[in-house]
């Protein structure tokens, strides 16, 4: 089983639900490690449908947005779907400002996101 230090990974039917272990995540020191773990879910563990649940995540930088864009490409290439849920309002605003809310499928909560797969 691959190790996930930055992520909590679970399965709900054919969807892999990912939560983040740090509250203040996705900033300078851990972004590379986190990106590697997220990409590994698709490239090494061959998971197709991913739901990233941002509950508890307080902060997100542009470096993290870049990782999410790359992850989205990898998921699409693998024939899967990527959805995001539980973004706090300030983080959702970052997606709106950068128009990335048009690129990603963002849902209010995990239940709604799972139903949308």
């Amino acid at each position: 089983m691959p190790e996930h230090r930055r992520l909590e990974v679970s399965e709900v039917s054919d969807v892999t639900v990912v939560r983040f272990t740090d509250r203040r995540i996705l900033d300078v020191t851990n972004i590379e490690e986190l990106g590697g773990e997220l990409f590994g879910l698709v490239e090494q563990e061959n998971r197709k449908n991913l739901l990233l649940n941002f509950a508890g995540v307080q902060f997100l930088s542009s470096a993290a947005l870049n990782k999410l864009i790359i992850l989205d490409r990898k998921v699409k290439r693998a024939g899967g779907k990527l959805k995001l849920s539980n973004l706090r309002p300030e983080i959702y605003e970052v997606f709106v400002i950068t128009r990335l809310h048009e690129v990603f499928d963002i849902r209010d909560d995990e239940k709604e996101a799972l139903e949308a797969f």
Binding site: S61, S62, A63, L65, N66, K67, I69, I70, D72, R73, V94, I97, T98, R99, L100, E102, V103
Partner: peptide, 20 residues
Amino acid sequence: PTLEENLELPSGRGLMLMRT
């Protein structure tokens, strides 16, 4: 980064966020 052709490029958002 918000132009249609740049939307999916994994770069260029930092400066915009600073200005915002």
